Amino acid sequence: MNVSHYFEFEEHVTGGIRESVAHQRKMLDRLDVTYTTEPRLDVDVFHCNLMGPQSVWYARRARSRGVPVVANTHVTAEDFGDSFRFTNALAKLLRPYLERAYGLADALVCPSAYNQDLIESYADVPTTVISNGVDVEKLEGFESLEETYRERYDLEPPVVFLVGHVIKRKGLETFVETARRLPDVDFVWFGPIDRSLKGRETLRLVDDAPSNCTFTGYVEDIRGAFAAGDVFFFPTHEENEGIALLEAMAAGKPVVVRDIETFSWLEDGEDCLKVDADGTEGFETAIERLRDPDVRQRLGDNAASRSEAFSLSEVAGRYETLYAEVT
């Protein structure tokens, strides 16, 4: 099996999409699959991760030559809004573009059942759910960084934290306002802010955050975030899956999430705490519950067990099966 595993804009795209591609390539390394990261058509499968114009160009030609096309559905119009400056306006134009682009594939890979439901309204193309997975090897040794990162950001446990780009869609307002309601608890958001790319409202929320709410900016060793944090707080409004959430669970951290369809696979009170709220009161109550170290331990242990099904070793074989099905 020879695959062109192409990631358009690879030099520029960061965040979850980049992590997903890295996970896929690590999984392919485990399998008997030869792949190139260049866009090539002299292959058994053309697999693209971001349907930019060059990917569309190659996908059209692959189809004309009888080379099956596989595409990951990392991007939807629904999760594009409230991300960076101008993305709300562009989201309206993105939907028809993606409908045409995803329609060129012979198979679409969706990271979750929720994403699959969305994508099936985009294109009449067979879909399959394959998780982005969690790279537990990347987290190895994170515990040793606890003291360093807590001292660096002056944090006192229990620390409420989030990992990822600072984006309004991920629940920035809820994160900040919950911190304001709990002034004796340290909240910290580990991840790039990219101020030049953010809208006025996002920057206002960051700049006006209370003193117990820290935004670290880019963190070179992300293991430090999972070492310093005690409660992973993810009040996102829209998500295709959430790699950082899977990483937090794999690290044995209890998680608090907004009760949205993406997280329907999580069981409230067992492997997470869910809050069905647009405001902050419910999140405040959930975090108050997690002041109890025994509750944190129980939910964290359950989360770690639940995350095992998402390890790269568990997910890898699904790509091998998919490639065999399309060829």
Rank of each mutant, 00 (worst) to 15 (best):
G66M: 06
H47Q: 04
R61C: 00
V33L: 15
A71T: 10
E78H: 14
W57R: 09
N72G: 09
L50E: 14
V45M: 03
D42R: 06
R40W: 07
E78P: 00
V75S: 14
T37Y: 00
T73H: 12
P53Y: 11
L50V: 04
D44S: 12
V67T: 02
V56E: 11
N72H: 15
H47E: 04
R40P: 05
Q54T: 15
V69F: 09
V70M: 01
V45F: 00
R65T: 06
L50Y: 13
N72C: 13
D79I: 15
A71V: 11
W57N: 07
C48E: 08
T34Y: 09
D79N: 15
M51Q: 04
V45A: 05
F46W: 03
Y35V: 12
T76K: 01
G52P: 05
V69K: 08
G66N: 01
S64E: 09
L41G: 05
T34S: 15
V69L: 06
R61S: 04
V70E: 01
V33E: 02
V43T: 10
Q54W: 02
Y35C: 13
A77V: 05
V69Q: 05
Y58G: 02
G52D: 12
V56S: 11
R60D: 02
T34I: 13
T73R: 07
M51C: 04
V67R: 01
T76S: 09
S64A: 15
V75H: 08
L41H: 02
V45C: 03
V70D: 03
A71M: 15
T73A: 13
P39N: 06
W57K: 13
V45L: 01
N72A: 07
R40A: 13
R60Y: 07
E38R: 04
Y58C: 08
H74V: 06
T37H: 06
T76G: 13
Y35T: 13
V56R: 12
D44N: 11
H74N: 08
C48M: 12
H47W: 00
Q54D: 15
V75I: 15
V56Y: 11
Y58P: 06
Y58A: 04
T73L: 06
A77M: 11
P68K: 08
D42V: 12
T73I: 10
R63V: 11
T34C: 10
D79R: 05
D44M: 07
T36Y: 02
R65K: 14
V43W: 04
G66R: 03
N72D: 13
V43K: 07
T37F: 05
Y35I: 14
P53G: 08
F46D: 03
R61D: 09
C48A: 11
D79H: 12
P39H: 01
V70K: 01
T76Q: 06
R61E: 13
A62D: 08
V56C: 10
M51K: 03
T73D: 12
V45W: 00
